[in-house]
Write a protein that binds this DNA or RNA. Structure first.
Lengths: 186, 186
DNA sequence: GACATAAAATACCATATGGTAACAAAATGA
DNA sequence: TCATTTTGTTACCATATGGTATTTTATGTC
């Protein structure tokens, strides 16, 4: 089993379960490699989890950025985000990034730094998206773009986190649609 | 230090930090008692955390139920909930119940059962409150009471969880107000 | 004071964690 | 072919966890 396979396995393990509950030992066992092998490849648990997060970001998180940068208008982009969060099968077990962010204090310094970077990037992407909508005149009164960006991000995080806890996707969609309806008020 | 003092200390420790990161050893050390003493009083870690949650429920969570059962109308009750979640100093370090619910899988069976009981009770209280508003004619079209109840609960949980992560209360209030504005649409 | 009894503390157990030193095997260079 | 470097494994370390058997300390009773 080569390094990338191990990384994929670790990413999936962190992603499917709770990152804090997946030990280095367990990953070695699953991968069928020894601990020193893993440590020579990734340096530390922090290094491994950071690498797993990086891989996750470029492999699945990127899709969310694509949606946001699509530039297909407020309603359409919000709809795509709702679809992704509520029904994309990849989000069935939640999102590794949100899981790590929720348990930030348990992460090593490198992984935590990456989480914060991604968080900031997500917020910027949200803000850019909403700013474009505002520039197009499609915006409710009395709401700052920054607050809206954070709100949008948190609502999506909430929806995906609920997916991980087995909530009914239809119900999640209903709630997320309700939450995001504030952007498209008549 | 008597049993109730120990329980208060444990509750506060669980509440202030992350329940999963507070060990039995740490509680004994803080309380200045020995481990067997604690085990004689509470049986197990599960027993202790359940007792702490019970105490928390009757001591602070009850306040939320009081607000919900106030019967002071939709807007006013929502305002009180927003005040409580955004600005009550007791919620500055988050809510023990929400913290435990977020890490449900780490809890012992008794504590987990209590968490689920409280969760169900909260949802019922939300539903009863919203049903009353609906009966009073104050209700947006096309939204079921059940979905609204769950939505309301999740939004408050989100707001209080953000308090725990040090978010600016004014920003939290802004977002929670935005989220709950769906109930009072013109 | 002597003795039985309840309470508390010390010291321990099994287990799991992240991490590493010592060592064997295989590939790689000359 | 031999030396060297890389790769991997076994076996271990220090630490922390939840939980307990055993011993000490206090307490009440005769």
């Amino acid at each position: 089993m080569n390094a990338k396979q191990v990384l994929d396995l670790a990413m999936t393990a962190y992603w499917h379960g709770d990152p804090a509950d997946v030990s280095v030992n367990a990953i070695c066992q699953m991968a069928g490699i020894s601990k020193p092998s893993l440590y020579r490849e990734f340096g530390s648990e922090d290094g491994l989890s950071r690498a797993a997060l990086d891989r996750y970001a470029e492999q699945v998180l990127s899709e969310m950025f694509v949606i946001l940068h699509g530039g297909t208008g407020l309603r359409q982009t919000l709809g795509a985000l709702i679809d992704f969060a509520s029904d994309d099968p990849r989000m069935e077990t939640g999102c590794l990034f949100y899981k790590m962010r929720a348990g930030k204090h348990r992460l090593g310094p490198k992984t935590r730094a990456r989480v914060e970077e991604i968080d900031a990037a997500g917020q910027s992407a949200n803000a850019a998206f909403l700013q474009a909508a505002r520039d197009a005149g499609d915006w409710p009164e009395g709401l700052s773009v920054e607050a809206g960006a954070k709100y949008l991000g948190e609502q999506i995080a909430l929806a995906i986190t609920q997916r991980a806890s087995g909530e009914d996707p239809a119900r999640i969609r209903e709630m997320l649609t309700l939450a995001l309806s504030v952007f498209t008020r008549p």
